[in-house]
Design a binder for these strands. Sequence first.
DNA 1: TAGATTGTTAATCGATTAACAATC
DNA 2: TAGATTGTTAATCGATTAACAATC
Lengths: 216, 216
Amino acid sequence: MRWNKISDAVIRRLPLYLRVLDELARESDTESISSQELGVKAGVGPALVRKDLAWFGEFGKQGVGYEIGFLRDELRKILNLDSKISVALVGVGSLGVALTRYHLKRYAEDESFNLELIALFDSDPAKIGMTVQGIPVFDLKDVAAQVKEKQLKIVIIAVPASDAQEVANAFIQAGIQGILNFAPIKLQAPDTVHVVAADLSLELQRLAYYIPKYTG
Amino acid sequence: MRWNKISDAVIRRLPLYLRVLDELARESDTESISSQELGVKAGVGPALVRKDLAWFGEFGKQGVGYEIGFLRDELRKILNLDSKISVALVGVGSLGVALTRYHLKRYAEDESFNLELIALFDSDPAKIGMTVQGIPVFDLKDVAAQVKEKQLKIVIIAVPASDAQEVANAFIQAGIQGILNFAPIKLQAPDTVHVVAADLSLELQRLAYYIPKYTG
DNA sequence: TAGATTGTTAATCGATTAACAATC
DNA sequence: TAGATTGTTAATCGATTAACAATC
């Protein structure tokens, strides 16, 4: 499936819809849901819900709404979550380990979270060869070989800012497709590689703007 | 300082500019920077840089640009980062501990990261009374008292999704102003409390969209 | 002064919302 | 059939970019 140039604003709402549908499929016994209801649960207007979905096909029935299980399956397909995607994580420090645990928990609990963390990387000889939560830690030197062998598609970067670009380069070179970056720097990458910034400190600094200096 | 209704799109670029200016102040010996150069370094168009800054005042000189140290100081004031803001974190699991370490590192390394983590919370009696990286762990029952006593303004939520809303309610009740939420649920909060979602699994699912099924 | 760059207004672009014919 | 709700087009809203007079 290939659609031409759908806005990122649309794409970031799809996992939100998917989460609502997963929950409904689990906990509700209703068969269908209207754009109105889905919008309320996702925090989005009903017209926007319909417009977002309409980019990918006609999934609803007039007068009825969307069949929950069907729409969930379609969204999984659209998001490439209908088959497993292999994920790596680099930087087995406390953040890396915590993210590994977090990831495994999401994988276990959320049916639509079809991203499987199967390889960790570090440069510390004391860590290489270990397993963390059952996942092996490889030498950073083996990135190229492992990306190829394990068909790794996405890498989570949890190394210090000073190492992040170099590490990213190694994975880009090896043919990774997506990067989730926790280091507080802007990574340079070709247009073919999608980079998502998870920059905690920027978010906190932004939050500070909304804190009135003198409360009360 | 009070400006009326400046768009969130503007606010989220300010910490980015501030980061560039901090780096320039440290590593460069030039006095000033043009909107052109600042834009390149922040990944933003020059006209947008000027428009963003112009919301808050006239900080530049025609024909010259912006004086780096001055603009940095002004941005710190605008973002309320010119004086310390007290931050709490709840959920002293592996993610909470990792975020604590991450936070302390940012605080030590980044001059403009004036958000000080001074209190941790958990409900596990085995953790209450401990310190993590020198920061005390309090009982969740003491939220109200500690928020008041320590003037806590922001809380980082790193508890399981099932507990997140309840925990958020306790902090909201106690008068917290901002929440950074790592739990994979949409928190309900009054308009007076600013909530930022740090939802790792949504970001990864979004990234999956951009991964072509068959590579090569 | 001449060249450069700001702050700001007008033009453009893109995203959201409103409205409604089609139809289940 | 009558009521409800989709998919889609048109209207609105908001954000970014272009252009340029003011001025350092």
